[in-house]
Amino acid sequence: MSIQHFRVALIPFFAAFCLPVFAHPETLVKVKDAEDQLGARVGYIELDLNSGKILESFRPEERFPMMSTFKVLLCGAVLSRVDAGQEQLGRRIHYSQNDLVEYSPVTEKHLTDGMTVRELCSAAITMSDNTAANLLLTTIGGPKELTAFLHNMGDHVTRLDRWEPELNEAIPNDERDTTMPAAMATTLRKLLTGELLTLASRQQLIDWMEADKVAGPLLRSALPAGWFIADKSGAGERGSRGIIAALGPDGKPSRIVVIYTTGSQATMDERNRQIAEIGASLIKHW
């Protein structure tokens, strides 16, 4: 067993022997301040990774656009098919120029040779490549099948209805392509620590998230040296922004954090800054 596999296998073990965790309302004060600064709703939840206990939450059962955070769930569904012998990570998928959609920095470079399922998941999570996500959605049967996968996990809230990039439209009061912070946090925890996926697939999923290259201005910008984070960000229309993450000190994750916002007129930089400040408060009061 590799060191990384050992780390993920012992996530519940280490967490069980940690000192009790206590909620700190100071972080919620910052979440509410972010709402004021952005002029928009902000949803927040913080779960203990081992027990699933909610440590703090704000608007945990209000719907927010998922945006690209759905790509972690998508690759979880792909990995479940791999575990069941219905898919192979090494299978190569070929596609054409007509398949390319807006923001496809990886797939646009491989029109000639195609990409493997493993490479597509890596591109979808680490670079948020939209064509990679659409190609992977095709392998599982489309958005409705991802929703069905989530329902089978016990998540009857999260739903995907459309493809990239239309799913980022974020129309107010439109339930399409949305989740709730509580539902997303619980589902992410199941994917990373539950028995739904094999140990190898859980490790692969967290490795992809740990290698995320496009979430630097968010929670990662607030992390002290030595902290662990595996995350996936999302951005959408109407001032929408979000991030889902597993993080913790001492090089291992111990909490799940989900943050979503929508309806702001603020710039992307300002949305990023507010999420980073929430992260800084979380870490300060850990």
Rank of each mutant, 00 (worst) to 15 (best):
T186R: 14
D48M: 04
L223N: 12
K144E: 08
I244C: 10
A133W: 01
N152D: 11
A182K: 14
E102H: 05
G76I: 09
I45F: 15
D207T: 06
T27V: 14
A148V: 04
G90Y: 05
G154V: 04
K284L: 11
H110Q: 07
G226C: 04
G236D: 05
W227I: 01
R159S: 10
A222I: 15
L100T: 08
D177N: 10
E164Q: 00
R241M: 08
L205Q: 02
S96K: 11
P60E: 04
G242H: 02
G141T: 10
Q37V: 05
N50I: 10
P165Y: 06
T198A: 13
S57R: 10
R238K: 04
G226Y: 06
A225R: 09
L28R: 08
A40I: 04
A40H: 05
R271G: 13
L120F: 05
D113R: 04
E26P: 14
G39L: 13
G239H: 15
C75Y: 00
L55V: 15
N130H: 01
R59S: 11
I140Y: 05
I54Q: 11
L47T: 08
W227L: 00
R91V: 05
V42K: 00
A230M: 04
G234D: 01
E145A: 05
L197K: 11
Q97I: 04
S122K: 08
I54C: 07
R271H: 15
T107L: 09
T131G: 07
K32W: 15
T261K: 11
L167K: 00
R118E: 11
L247D: 02
H24P: 04
A84G: 14
G154D: 11
D212E: 08
N272Y: 02
E169L: 07
E56S: 05
E166Q: 09
R59D: 02
A235H: 02
A225C: 07
A280Q: 04
I256S: 02
I54F: 11
D269Y: 06
K53P: 03
V106D: 11
L282K: 03
L89F: 06
Y260L: 08
W208N: 09
E46C: 10
V258C: 06
Q37I: 09
P165R: 06
H24G: 08
M153E: 04
G234K: 00
C121G: 05
T27L: 14
E145V: 05
R91Q: 14
W227Q: 00
L247F: 05
H110A: 14
I54A: 11
K53D: 12
K232H: 00
R41W: 03
D231V: 14
T187H: 11
R202L: 05
L247T: 08
G248D: 02
R273G: 06
L167A: 06
F149V: 15
N98E: 06
M268N: 14
I206Y: 03
S233E: 01
S104Q: 02
L197P: 05
E169C: 06
G142P: 02
N134M: 04
M127I: 09
N173K: 10
L223V: 15
L282C: 12
Q88S: 10
T69D: 01
R118V: 14
V106R: 11
A40G: 07
A182D: 07
D36W: 13
L49Q: 07
G76C: 09
E166G: 13
V31F: 03
G216T: 08
E169I: 08
Y260E: 00
D161H: 05
V31M: 06
V72L: 11
Q97P: 08
G76A: 07
V214Q: 12
E61G: 07
P143Y: 06
T193S: 11
L49F: 09
P25C: 03
M268E: 10
Q88K: 13
S264W: 05
A246R: 03
A276L: 11
R238V: 09
A34Q: 09
A148E: 04
I278H: 01
G234N: 01
R92T: 15
A123L: 04
V157Q: 09
I259V: 10
E108M: 15
P249D: 07
L192R: 00
I206K: 12
V106P: 02
E108Y: 15
V117M: 04
E119W: 02
W208Q: 04
E270Q: 03
N152R: 10
C75P: 00
G251R: 13
M67Y: 02
L150I: 14
D36K: 15
D231R: 10
L136C: 09
R92H: 11
A132G: 12
L199K: 04
Y260W: 02
E169H: 09
L100C: 07
E87G: 10
R255F: 03
G216W: 08
L135K: 09
P217V: 08
G85I: 05
L219T: 04
L199Q: 07
A276V: 11
A245Y: 01
V214S: 15
T131Y: 05
G85Q: 12
D99C: 08
H285R: 10
A77R: 04
E175P: 09
L188W: 12
M66R: 00
G263C: 11
M184C: 03
A215K: 15
S201Y: 15
L49H: 10
P253Q: 10
T116P: 12
I45C: 14
A185E: 00
L89A: 08
Q274S: 08
T198V: 06
K252D: 15
I125A: 04
M209G: 03
D207V: 07
W227T: 02
A185I: 08
C121Y: 01
Y95R: 02
L47A: 11
L282G: 11
R92G: 10
L74V: 12
R41L: 12
H110E: 09
P181C: 14
G226R: 05
D161E: 05
A124G: 12
G141D: 04
S122T: 11
Q274L: 08
S254Q: 10
D99F: 08
R241L: 14
L199S: 08
N152M: 12
M127G: 11
E108A: 15
I259E: 00
P105M: 07
E62N: 04
T147H: 05
L49E: 04
P65H: 07
T187P: 01
